[in-house]
Design a protein around this nucleic acid. Structure first.
Lengths: 201, 201
DNA sequence: ACACGGTTTAACCACAAGGTTAAGGAGCGC
DNA sequence: GCGCTCCTTAACCTTGTGGTTAAACCGTGT
C-alpha cells in the first residue's frame, strides 16, 4: 500500500492530531490508527508503543515552539524589533494551533521529565545576545534593570497564556468563537507597546 | 470507624492530592483509596464514580481561585492597590499550591465543558467596578486606554504562567528548586510596577 | 438484648485498551 | 518462478482498572 505519504508519517500526523485534541492519556491508539487509515498493529510496528509515539509527538510539538523563539531573541534585530517579532509571530503561530498550548501544559504536568528529552543533553539555548542588549539599554538609562529570565517569562506569558486557558477566558470574559480572534488581534496591536512601556525607567 | 475526619472528607482530600499530582486521567482510584486509608468501594459509595469525584475536586480547585480574584478586582481599593494585592496574594497562593495551575490547565484542555459547571448558570462575575476605575484613569490622562478583559488577562498571565510551565521554565532558564522561589520573589517585587508602568500613556 | 440504620469491607466482575502473533501481500533481484 | 524483505492485516491475548455485590461492622435507640 503506502498511499501517497508513507504510512509511518500518516500515523505520526494522525497521532499528532489526536494527541493534541484529547491529550495522550485519553487518546486511544485505535482512534489514531483509524485516523491514519491503518491497522492498530502497524502503529506498534513503527513506534513500538503508545508511549514512544506520544514522546515523538511531544518532541515534535515542543520542538516547533522554542527554537523559533530563541532564534528571534538571539538574532540581530534591536530589542524593540525582537519584541514585536515575537509577539507577531507567536500570536499567529498559536492562532493556527489552538490545541497546542493546552496540550503542552497538560503533557508537561503529567510528564515533566519529558521536556528534558526535548532539549537533549545540551541544556537550554543561551540568551547571551538578548542579555547584552538589555544591559546596554539599562546602562543607557533607557530601560529599568530586569533579569533576562524575567524578560522572557513576561513576554512569553503575555503571548501564550490566553491560549492556554482559552476555555476559562471564554467563560469569564465572555470572549468566545470569533470574539476570541478579535481579542487576539487586539493583543497583537497592544502587547509590544505594553511590554516595552512596562520597562521604561 | 471514621477516625477524626469523616471518611467522605478524607476521600475528597486524598482525591484532591492525587488528582492534582497525576491529573485525573492518570490517577487511579485505588491510589486515592489508599491515600485516604479506605476501601475502593467506599469511594463509590460516597461519590458514585471516578468522574463525579473528579468533577467535585475540579470545582473545588477552581472555586478556590476565581472568587478571590474577582473579590479583589471588584473591591474598593484603588487600581494600583488592586494590582499589588492580586500579585501578592496570588503569587503566595500559587507558591503554596505548585500543582494547581498545571492541573487546571490539563483538566481544562481535556474537559473544557467543566469550567461551565464551575460557574453555574450565572455566567462570569461582573467587573464593572474595575472597568469604571480604568475609564476614570484613562479620562484623567493617567493611563492609556485598555479593555478590561485585556487588563485582567495580562495581569493573570504574568502571575500564573510561570507556575503553569514550571518544568519548562526550570529547563530553559536553568531556574530550579529553590531558585524558582527566588524567581517568584523577584516577580513579586517587580510585577506591579512593570504592569502599571506598561499602561502609562 | 436486639434490631436497625448508616458505614465499611473483601471478593468479584466486565470490559476496554494496549500489545502480540502468525500469516498474508507486494514489490524486487535473480 | 522463487525467494527475500519490507509492509500490513485480522484475530487473539493479557492486564489494569473502574465498578458491583453481598455480607459484616458498629453505634444508637428502645
Amino acid at each position: 500500500m503506502a498511499d501517497e505519504k508513507e504510512s509511518r508519517q500518516r500515523i505520526l500526523d494522525a497521532a499528532h492530531k489526536i494527541f493534541l485534541r484529547r491529550g495522550t492519556a485519553l487518546a486511544r491508539t485505535q482512534e489514531i490508527a483509524d485516523e491514519a487509515g491503518v491497522n492498530k498493529a502497524l502503529l506498534h510496528y513503527y513506534f513500538g508503543s503508545k508511549q514512544k509515539l506520544a514522546e515523538e509527538v511531544f518532541r515534535g510539538a515542543v520542538g516547533d515552539f522554542f527554537p523559533r523563539l530563541f532564534a528571534i531573541l538571539q538574532g540581530d534585530s534591536t530589542l524593540e524589533e525582537k519584541v514585536s517579532l515575537v509577539v507577531d509571530h507567536y500570536l499567529d503561530f498559536l492562532s493556527a494551533r489552538p490545541y497546542l498550548p493546552g496540550y503542552v501544559a497538560s503533557e508537561m504536568h503529567a510528564h515533566p521529565e519529558r521536556i528534558r528529552a526535548v532539549f537533549g543533553q545540551r541544556g537550554p539555548a543561551p540568551v547571551t545576545v538578548l542579555r547584552r542588549q538589555i544591559e546596554e539599554r539599562v546602562a543607557f538609562g533607557a530601560m529599568r534593570p530586569i533579569a533576562v529570565e524575567q524578560f522572557v517569562a513576561n513576554l512569553v506569558a503575555l503571548i501564550v497564556f490566553p491560549f492556554m486557558v482559552r476555555p476559562a477566558l471564554a467563560m469569564l470574559l465572555q470572549v468566545e468563537g470569533d470574539r476570541f480572534d478579535a481579542f487576539v488581534a487586539e493583543r497583537k496591536r497592544t502587547l509590544p507597546e505594553f511590554f516595552l512601556n512596562g520597562l521604561r525607567p
